[in-house]
């Protein structure tokens, strides 16, 4: 599993991961490996802990008071929840796109340049290049190239979400976490984001939480199904290639959920 120089062939690897909010256990004993340059979907009914799990992958959970984790998440051979790990450093490498588009109330340019700037890039010309490249990657360049000075909030919902994706790309992460990125968008915008995700996986590892099973089926290569178990703690029920999960799931609960018997 681990090659000689200490790195793993997986992009991320969770081992016996438990996540707590104060004394409440939100996620119980998750072990899973995320394949690089693939899209992995986390599905399950609401409250099953899939967002919590996703947020633990770049330690966004730290921002919730009283949250802590047991177990390990390995990233390039290092435990993200290790003692000496800087969450700020983690988040730069493992970026995140949120449920509701949340552009900063700044211009499109400043939105994207924000990340590189806080990392110390002050050169105007290079910033310009980063902005253009990120916008192109997020398939937003043609829409906005003439008014980069416009406020990010003036864009449509789908454009805002692509702006947020571009913003994430600008800090050159390796993994992108997406927390129901399309739930606030209309179907056409959703399709465009999905298309974008497929393009991005050439270069990035993507983990997406979605409550929309069709979406998981359409875009993901791997799917993890989670369910609320004992004491309302989320548990990983089944994790496999998407095709398998949707055609021949091992667990009957997965099948029930997929076929719409509950959830």
């Amino acid at each position: 599993m681990t090659n000689p120089n200490g790195t793993s062939k997986y992009a991320l690897e969770a081992r016996n991961l438990h996540i707590f909010y104060s004394s409440f256990r939100a996620v119980r004993n998750v072990t899973m490996q995320i394949e690089p340059n693939k899209i992995t979907a986390l599905i399950g009914p609401s409250g099953c802990g899939k967002s919590t799990l996703l947020r633990s992958f770049n330690r966004m959970n730290d921002l919730v008071l009283g949250s802590h984790a047991e177990g390990e998440i390995l990233y390039r051979g290092q435990n993200l929840y290790g003692n000496n790990v800087d969450p700020v450093e983690v988040r730069r490498r493992i970026g995140m796109v949120f449920q509701k588009p949340n552009p900063f109330p700044k211009s499109i340019f400043d939105n994207i340049a924000y990340g590189p700037r806080i990392l110390g890039q002050r050169n105007k010309k290079i910033l310009g290049e980063i902005v253009e490249r990120s916008l192109r990657q997020a398939a937003l360049w043609d829409d906005v190239k003439d008014n980069l000075k416009k406020s990010g909030l003036a864009l449509s919902g789908g454009q805002q979400q692509r702006l947020c994706i571009a913003r994430t790309l600008a800090v050159e992460p390796e993994i992108i976490l997406m927390d129901e990125p399309c739930s606030a968008l209309d179907p056409i915008a959703t399709l465009r984001i999905e298309e974008l995700m497929r393009e991005l996986k050439e270069n990035y590892t993507i983990i997406i939480v979605t409550h929309n099973m069709q979406q998981a089926a359409r875009v993901s290569d791997y799917t993890a199904f989670m369910l609320m178990g004992n004491e309302r703690a989320g548990e990983l029920i089944e994790y496999d290639q998407t095709e398998r999960i949707f055609t021949k799931p091992n667990d009957s609960r997965t099948e029930d959920y997929i076929t719409g018997r509950f959830g």
Partner: peptide, 10 residues
């Protein structure tokens, strides 16, 4: 806004 910023490694 905070989350977006933290998410970028700020």
């Amino acid at each position: 806004l905070r989350q977006a910023s933290y998410g970028l490694g700020a």
